Every structure is written in structure tokens, then in C-alpha cells.
Computed example of a mutant assay.
Amino acid sequence: MSVGAVAAVSATLPVAGLDAARPAEATGGAQFAGVLGSVEQLQQLQSTSQELGVRAVTGDLDDVHDYTIAAQQSSLALELTAAVRNKAVEAFTEIMRMQV
């Protein structure tokens, strides 16, 4: 996967909660909305990839590269989302461990 494709996926999936200039309490709702927006964008990438896959199989797609790029973007976005989710779960688990 090229660096440009990684940058394109990173731009479409903003990681909420990385703004150190503002306190977490002031941006909590905005961060959650950003995460939901990222999940919606992931779903959009997956549906686009699936649609292009169907078009490629049926012969309606002129350039198969479009499907390949869309499938890679979808895959990379899913991996990024899973990694962020895993880190959030780890952080939550660590916080719960501190409270005991």
C-alpha cells in the first residue's frame, strides 16, 4: 500500500481525542461524535468496496484498479479502527484496575 493511500485513509478517519490543547471534559461530546463519524466513514468505505467488487465480477467496472484501491482503503480503515478500539479497551481496563 502506498504512502498516499495511507494518508487518504487517515484523512477520512479522523482520530478523535488527540487534541492536547483542550481538556478532555470540554471536548468529550465532540470526541464521541468524531468516533461515530469515523465508524460511519468506515461503513461507507466498506459499502463502496463491496459495490465495486460486485461491478468488477459482473463486468460492469471498466478499471479493476478502482476496486483494488477501494478494497485496500476499506481494509486499512478497518485495521485502524480495530487498533484504536483495542487501545481504548486497554485504557479502560487499566483505569478500572486502578480503581480497585
Rank of each mutant, 00 (worst) to 15 (best):
M1C: 08
M1T: 10
M1W: 10
A5H: 07
A5R: 15
A5W: 11
V6W: 07
A7L: 14
A8M: 13
A8S: 14
L13Q: 03
L13D: 02
P14F: 13
P14M: 11
V15Q: 15
V15M: 05
A16T: 02
L18N: 09
A21G: 06
R22D: 02
A24H: 13
E25T: 13
E25K: 13
E25W: 14
T27S: 13
G28C: 14
G28Q: 15
A30G: 08
Q31C: 10
G34L: 06
G34K: 03
G34E: 04
V35F: 15
V35E: 04
V39H: 06
E40A: 14
E40V: 06
E40F: 10
Q41Y: 05
Q41M: 11
L42A: 05
L45N: 03
S47W: 02
S47A: 07
S47E: 11
S49K: 02
S49L: 04
S49G: 03
Q50K: 05
Q50H: 05
Q50L: 06
E51T: 11
L52F: 00
L52M: 04
G53I: 04
V54W: 01
V54S: 05
V54M: 10
R55T: 02
R55I: 02
D60S: 07
D60H: 06
L61K: 11
L61Y: 13
D62W: 03
H65I: 08
Y67P: 01
T68V: 12
T68W: 08
I69A: 08
I69M: 08
A70Y: 01
A71W: 03
Q73W: 06
Q73M: 13
S75N: 07
S75A: 12
A77G: 08
A77D: 03
L78C: 04
L78V: 00
L80I: 06
L80Y: 09
L80M: 14
L80W: 08
T81N: 09
A82Y: 04
R85I: 05
K87Q: 10
A91L: 15
F92Y: 07
T93P: 00
T93L: 10
E94L: 11
I95C: 09
Q99I: 12
